[in-house]
Amino acid sequence: MVSDLTDEHLMIAHIAGDKKAFSELVRRYGPILSGMARRQVRLPELARDIVQQTFLQVHRARNDFRVGAQLKPWVLTIATNLIREHFRRTKRRPETSYEALNAEYPSVEPMVEPVDFAGIQSRALEVQRLNDALVKLPESQRLVIELHWIQGYPFAEVAQMVGASVSAVKVRAHRGYRKLRTLIDEERAG
């Protein structure tokens, strides 16, 4: 059963020619990459295109994958580079039409006292505010926060993925988190 294999074994099976292995990888990484792409580029169609391009690049680069390496950082680096290329090509910050993404969240009544951080996961409005704030960050800070906070990688690995020094990544993260806090507070203040 391909579903019992680890990501790395699936990749090796794909390299060996197992067609089902790559579909299983798409099943596992599709949601992760879709979330990442939508948070970065906002427009669902564009995000879908980036996700497809990422899988295509994973396939094309399969012979560069080394046994013993971890697949997830490898895939996320490809996605990160494609997102950066997108912004480089369009020479602008992400599209500011937040409605496209926010429309996908269930509508809720505004909370009177949205200060309970522990319960944030269940609050669509908070998520919406957070996504709105994230998209206002500069691309470099947003990517670092995506990889550090959302994907859960330590700074050393984030630095490798974005091709910067650990100190530079920490500074970007610091500034990003600080700005994120300010933006969220401003949103909450109304």
Partner: peptide
């Protein structure tokens, strides 16, 4: 503390969207 908690929500992908993605990727391959 807000940023120490896990990110509140990963954007979900419905089964239909996932199947479309899989078939699109297979088609590209």
């Amino acid at each position: 503390p807000e940023f120490e908690a896990p990110y509140p929500e990963q954007i979900p992908l419905s089964e239909d969207e996932l199947q479309t993605l899989i078939s699109d990727v297979e088609s590209e391959l």
